[in-house]
Design a protein around this nucleic acid. Structure first.
Length: 262
DNA sequence: ATGGTTGCATGGCAA
């Protein structure tokens, strides 16, 4: 089973790219972020025509996440628990039946947090606290759980092209990296890091200043796996070639293959 | 060189 996370950067502007990619990549489950539309505006017909179920948690203009899946989810939960007054749409969870049980797949769009001296940074840190609490509570289920998305976290120095450029950025702050590490210390595995060597492997290249041709990228899109999911991990693939397509997102799809039987 | 690009929505914000 192929599970992919992709920050699409506007699903309505990107529908042709998304359809072309779905046909090429043939994923089983897709976690989208930054759909940048309300649920009503999501171009679901084009996706459903390819045999996918569509579940969205949209927002006008900004943010928004979605799950596309060949299997119909048995259960869908919208919003990250822990703050009922949080109106930003950044989290959706789907539960899917597989042979012998269920898997849970979450599409998350973690707050960027810049500029650090504004209220945006404490919002990021509190969101990470909520994510860690959610992850910890789900671990008790002892099920395969995949927390996939745009984490807006540069976890290690080799996950960016130049540490000096990112030193003071919210994505690389010590407290940001520490909060991400808590997820690993709970027992979650970074799927890409677990299956690749130390070669720089980026998932985002800014549109500005020729970052893509210069390979000035960062790795911020992650699939974090519970022990039961990590046990079934076969391989991962950063689908970097998609960044060179016409009208690309600034992020590329990050895929993981599992030996779950549907 | 204090720039540069894109999406949403149509001015300015977020990234």
């Amino acid at each position: 089973m192929k599970i992919v996370t992709w920050n699409i950067n506007g699903v309505r502007a990107r529908i042709d790219v998304l359809v072309a990619w779905l046909k090429e990549s043939q994923p089983d489950i897709v976690c989208l972020q930054e759909i940048k539309t309300m649920d009503e505006g999501f171009p679901r017909a084009e996706i459903e025509a390819l045999g996918y179920h569509v579940e969205t948690h949209g927002q006008k203009g900004f943010n928004g996440v979605a799950l596309l899946s060949k299997l119909r989810p048995d259960e869908v939960n919208r919003g990250l628990p822990g703050n009922d007054s949080d109106e930003q749409s950044r989290f959706i969870e789907g539960v899917f039946s597989i042979e012998g049980g269920a898997i849970r797949v979450c599409s998350l769009y973690l707050p960027n947090g810049n500029p650090v001296e504004t209220e945006k940074y404490p919002y990021k840190l509190s969101w990470m606290d909520r994510l860690n609490a959610f992850a910890q509570s789900r671990l008790a289920l002892e099920e395969p759980l995949i927390l996939a998305g745009d984490y807006n976290v540069i976890a290690e120095p080799h996950d960016c092209w130049d540490v000096k450029v990112w030193q003071n950025d919210a994505l690389f702050q010590p407290r940001t990296r520490q909060a991400f590490r808590r997820l690993e210390n709970l027992g979650f595995t970074d799927a890409v890091r677990a299956t690749t060597d130390t070669t720089p492997l980026y998932t985002f290249w800014d549109y500005q200043a020729g970052c893509w041709p210069k390979n000035f990228g960062i790795r911020i899109d992650h699939l974090m796996l519970s022990p039961e999911a990590a046990d079934k991990l076969i391989s991962t693939n950063v689908e970097k070639h998609v960044r060179a397509w016409e009208k690309p997102s600034d992020h590329v799809p990050v895929a993981a293959e599992f030996n779950f039987a549907a």
